[in-house]
Amino acid sequence: MLFKDRTEAGKILGGRLREYQGRNALILALPRGGVPVAAAVATALNAELDVVITRKIGAPGNPELAIGAVTGDGTVLLNDSLVSSLGVEKDFIDLKVKQAESEIQEYIRRYRGERPVPKVAGRIVLIVDDGIATGYTVMAAAEAILRKGPEELVIAVPVAPRESVYELERTTGCQVVTVSRPASFVAVGQFYEDFKQVSDEEVRNALEDHSKYGRVEQKKND
């Protein structure tokens, strides 16, 4: 399946998640690409929108190859077999974790501003991204959110390879909802006509707009 753009993908994904409409769900986007998808999902479900920020740990000499990921609460998830096969030293990992934690705090300040951190405990939470490749960033995000005691945690993406879906469900115990699970998968971008990079400004605007104008029915009922 080929999506026109992230917003269209989010609208279609939202249709797969109708059971969570009107249930005070919290939609947590993985910035930056996951935000337009999550905004469309949050609108469809009349749900609160925020972000969960993770940073990839890239391999020495090949930063695009993820050997793990870090979240804002200090959760570190490593691909132990890859770390071992590449001979990555502990000092390198420790340095990258510290750098990632610093970057995460900057992104939190940049995206959330003065808005309070949303409540997670006892709520239905959906982690949304524009797609999954290896799954390590969303896996780290899921581990961090699970520690906060949600009633239910769901991972929702428009597209992901079947192997990554099965591995995520096995390791996190969470349901993974997708629109498409192609057998042939190279990169997330191949399933979008428009896969341009999302800017920090677009992320901030999406979060602010949803905070001001989203959840219309909820506001009427309050």
Rank of each mutant, 00 (worst) to 15 (best):
K11A: 13
A156L: 07
K90H: 12
I127K: 02
Y111I: 05
I67W: 03
V154C: 02
Y213Q: 08
V76K: 03
L126S: 06
I108G: 04
A187K: 10
F92A: 07
D94K: 14
R115S: 12
E151H: 09
E151I: 04
Y20T: 04
E201M: 08
E169H: 09
Q190T: 06
Y136G: 00
E19Q: 13
K96T: 07
A160V: 01
N46V: 09
Y111T: 05
G131K: 01
A144P: 01
L65T: 08
P161Y: 05
E201A: 14
G131N: 00
R23L: 15
P60K: 06
A133V: 03
V138D: 00
S81G: 12
V88M: 02
G14A: 03
Q197S: 09
G131L: 01
G14M: 02
S81C: 06
Y20W: 12
D80M: 11
A144S: 14
I57W: 00
R112L: 10
P116S: 02
V177E: 02
D94G: 11
M139P: 00
Y107A: 13
V186Q: 13
D194N: 14
Y20L: 12
A187P: 10
A29P: 05
M139V: 00
Q99F: 02
P36C: 10
T134W: 10
S84L: 13
V125R: 00
E114I: 12
L153F: 08
S184Q: 15
V138Y: 04
D50C: 06
Y192R: 02
R215D: 07
P63S: 11
R6F: 08
S85Y: 04
I67M: 06
R16I: 10
S211R: 15
Y213I: 08
G173P: 06
Q175L: 14
A183G: 15
P63H: 12
D194H: 09
Y166A: 15
V159C: 01
D94I: 09
Y107E: 13
L86Y: 05
V154M: 02
V35T: 00
I127L: 14
S84F: 11
S85A: 11
E64A: 11
K220H: 12
D73Q: 10
R147N: 14
E193K: 14
T171L: 15
V76G: 00
A40P: 02
V51I: 09
P158C: 03
E106W: 09
E163D: 13
V37N: 07
G131A: 00
A39C: 11
V128K: 04
E114L: 13
L78V: 08
A206R: 04
I53H: 02
F195G: 01
R162A: 09
A140S: 06
H210N: 08
F185P: 06
V76I: 09
A42W: 07
